[in-house]
Design a protein around this nucleic acid. Structure first.
Length: 245
DNA sequence: GTGAATGTTAACAG
DNA sequence: CCTGTTAACATTCA
């Protein structure tokens, strides 16, 4: 379900309910539901894979993890993790992490780290990558402190688009390539958003879950590399592995 | 029926 | 204190 672009879609669905009063709050999430009742939602925001329901001096952080889901003005047949009644409307979240955070989102998040945010800073990402020279690019793309919102699908597609082998160490990647992959992390994320809305996302996958390289017509490799050990599809022929400098 | 997957965190071992 | 491993969470699809 959720990489950054999917969370943007959720936020867009929630925004019409901004400035509504919470008439009732319940659910199995271990938060103080009493804090919510009677309060007015100031904004729905997102940061990477987090959805933020903002009140005056605190906000609710929701992470959909791998299997999270939500329904607006509908219910499932299982208990909600978080149910918000907003007068005649309701918002329900299932199978997710819910946390109540004190203060403002700005106290906890740097929005220049969110690849979907208008304030995303490619320069900041590059600086952070340079500080981790020995890490593998397949791990760093999933590092939420650098690329908040990038998930495993985006990782695989970005590596393929930029013709970079997943096992490249940051320090061995030429500067221009590093710039390119940072740029592509954002650009593919917006393509993901567009295709997800069209319901054509999987049709556009060039690497993720693919068996044959669309450029070389030879079999992809499928491995679980690096610290993250997430499923990785790549072409040994056209995705370059740079030798130590 | 089995296993794996768009993810993270807490608990524990060393 | 830091690092690494494992379990837990819990749904859907092939």
């Amino acid at each position: 379900m959720p990489e950054g672009p999917s969370i943007v879609i959720l936020r867009e669905l929630l925004v019409p309910f901004e400035h509504r009063r919470v008439t009732a709050a319940s659910g199995t999430a271990k938060i103080d539901m009493g804090r919510l009742k009677g309060k007015t939602i100031q904004a729905f925001r997102s940061h990477g894979k987090h959805t933020l329901i903002c009140f005056n001096d605190f906000f609710i952080r929701i992470h959909l993890l791998m299997f999270g889901s939500y329904l607006i003005n509908e219910k499932k047949n299982v208990a909600e993790k978080l149910h918000l009644q907003l007068g005649k409307d309701e918002v329900n979240f299932y199978t997710c992490h819910v946390k109540l955070m004190e203060g403002k989102p700005e106290d906890h998040y740097d929005f220049e780290r969110d690849v979907m945010n208008k304030d995303w800073s490619a320069a900041k990402a590059k600086k952070s990558l340079k500080e981790e020279p020995a890490e593998l690019i397949c791990d760093e793309l999933l590092n939420q402190e650098i690329f908040a919102g990038v998930g495993n699908i985006i990782k695989n597609e970005v590596l393929f688009r930029t013709k970079l082998h997943p096992l490249n160490k940051i320090e061995n990647i030429p500067g221009a390539k590093l710039t390119a992959i940072i740029k592509e992390a954002r650009e593919y994320s917006f393509d993901f958003l567009k295709w997800k809305k069209d319901n054509t996302l999987s049709k556009h996958w060039e690497a993720h879950k693919q068996k044959i390289c669309p450029r070389c017509d030879i079999p992809f490799h499928k491995t679980y590399p690096g610290k993250s050990k997430r499923r990785t599809y790549y072409c040994n022929n056209c995705q370059e592995l740079y030798p130590p400098a």
